[in-house]
Design a protein around this nucleic acid. Sequence first.
DNA 1: TGTTCTACGTATATCGTTCTACAAAATCTT
DNA 2: AAGATTTTGTAGAACGATATACGTAGAACA
Lengths: 350, 350
Amino acid sequence: MSEKDTPATRPGERITIREVAQDAGVSVAAVSKVLRDAYGVSDALRTKVRASMAKLNYRPRASARGMRGRTYTIGLIFPDLRNPFFADIYSGVNAALERTQYQAMQGINTTSGAVNTTSSALIEAMIDRQMDGLIVIGPNIDMQALINLGERVPLVVVGHHDRGGDAFDTVNNDDQLGARLVVRHLVAKGFRRPAMLSLTPATSSIIQQREVGYRLEMMELGCGEAINIVRASQVVRDVQVAVRRLLSDANRPDAIFCWTDLMAFEAISVATEMGLSIPEDLAIVGYDNTIFCDLAQNSLTSVDQSGELLGLQAARMLIERIDGRTSAEHFIVPPRIVARGSASATSEAE
Amino acid sequence: MSEKDTPATRPGERITIREVAQDAGVSVAAVSKVLRDAYGVSDALRTKVRASMAKLNYRPRASARGMRGRTYTIGLIFPDLRNPFFADIYSGVNAALERTQYQAMQGINTTSGAVNTTSSALIEAMIDRQMDGLIVIGPNIDMQALINLGERVPLVVVGHHDRGGDAFDTVNNDDQLGARLVVRHLVAKGFRRPAMLSLTPATSSIIQQREVGYRLEMMELGCGEAINIVRASQVVRDVQVAVRRLLSDANRPDAIFCWTDLMAFEAISVATEMGLSIPEDLAIVGYDNTIFCDLAQNSLTSVDQSGELLGLQAARMLIERIDGRTSAEHFIVPPRIVARGSASATSEAE
DNA sequence: TGTTCTACGTATATCGTTCTACAAAATCTT
DNA sequence: AAGATTTTGTAGAACGATATACGTAGAACA
């Protein structure tokens, strides 16, 4: 009888909540309450339990917690791993999670280009693993899929303007304004025929927003006839072809506004190979203001959209949703242009 | 009584193994066996159960599995998110996991530079979440910590030559050879005073291996007096300072062999800003052969260490360990130099 | 003084799998 | 045909937390 009650604390094994309770001289339920910061715990009890947890070096197991409650894990889904912009978002998310019990786990949704109506394998895997919520980054996923997903699990989408009713929150920079700033900057520097290298497939309205911003600002500044939008996928080959075609045209643009810094670097490369010099023959502007913009060989003017802040807000909002909020919220940060050599006034002229 | 037996299958809820068993007309244990490919299942039973699983769209929950068995999740720990080389490793890992039930979850161990004896928060979090095994990438973690870790959980380390007895497997390229190839290449192209920009802190022997390779090959090719190793951390500022100092020296090197492509790009930037042209005044060679090497503005000669293959092997070996192997294995891939403009023979001379 | 709250703790069923032990059926041996 | 062995399937106890429901003690109020 007594042997059955005391399960003979095997030493090599991991400490469980039961042993903490025994050590602290309280019930298992009490320890669980302390763990979850639940209601109905006196200071004295909390202190006692915390002491035992520290002493025994106790760590709750996520799978056991997940059986009834939360796993305190959130999934972070990137569209790819090569763009250093996502590192900024990541560090923002981590900053927000710093003092919480939550931990982020990343996955890469490698369905580049393909719009997937059904949820991706990665997302299903994350749901199987009982993630308390998901942060999905980038415009790769179909709208209806997002809504379905948001109905199954707390969800925040970063970089996706379309709203899904109350199904999910969104976090963005003002892409229309960002595009306007670029055009304004270029025209101010004397480039009056900037083309835009946009993304295909143009599934999410984040792309449309930038294209609209580009068009409108071009019109308003009297450059309407020069409007020229070309689209390419993120694949290196596609970008090269698109840029080459753009620059081979009879009346080629005097500037290219690129969807992403990575595309802009490709553009610089192609232009250089074609013997054009930057910015004298061609100005280039990117988006994201990634660290590589600072390198002298790129010296890329770009739009900063505060990736870290985006990540921070996304995590904050997700936790609110996990804690029960059911109405959607939307966060927008203003973009800001960072001028560098790739779109400066022609240096000779200055 | 009958109500207790049939738990009244609530519709909105997720399908469980019990419902699959009921649908297939077999026991819960039988379904579990099919799920795990365990011994003692006839073809007929397997087919029947598989059909029910598909029909009901059943997916097992990782947390429940983790209570007794595996979670079928492995943790992938990167040192940072900005180096596109890690994307190659990632895709190798994913390729190896393709047809298995395993799923990789990533985390970034942001203890850049700092050598942590105690296991990092991320690693603890992954253990709390019952990862079946871990793949740790990069030389950031202290040797003793790795051994301790390997004794707690199946472990494969990528980019770390030191062996930890049977505690973990390692996957590497031959760094000593890689460094030799670089020196050989540079000397063959006429650069007889190449310096090496290495990494600090030099905790892992992967760094030592490259330094040894550099030294030995320099000696063997009769350039012993020109041996010059400078170290910097991965932090941008440090790299800039180190390169600037190197190039300001009275008899400056005619080439720099950089620890990583990222450092090489920095080096190109600094050299450019100092008015040096590449490769006429200074050759530069990187390591990893990341995608950015191909850009015309970098055109960086680099060492390819087949990141994808490394990832593939790491995942394969980890699964073997999870399945019970306890002796260590070590995989080494030969590096290969990829020549580009940054270290070509002076173009004028040719 | 008795009654009603409120705050604090506890006992225990429960979550969805896996795993151990065993029973039954099929096959092999002699 | 009887025993021995192997194969196939089942029952039911785990795993380690959480959450519900409830008991109790003290405070507040009449």
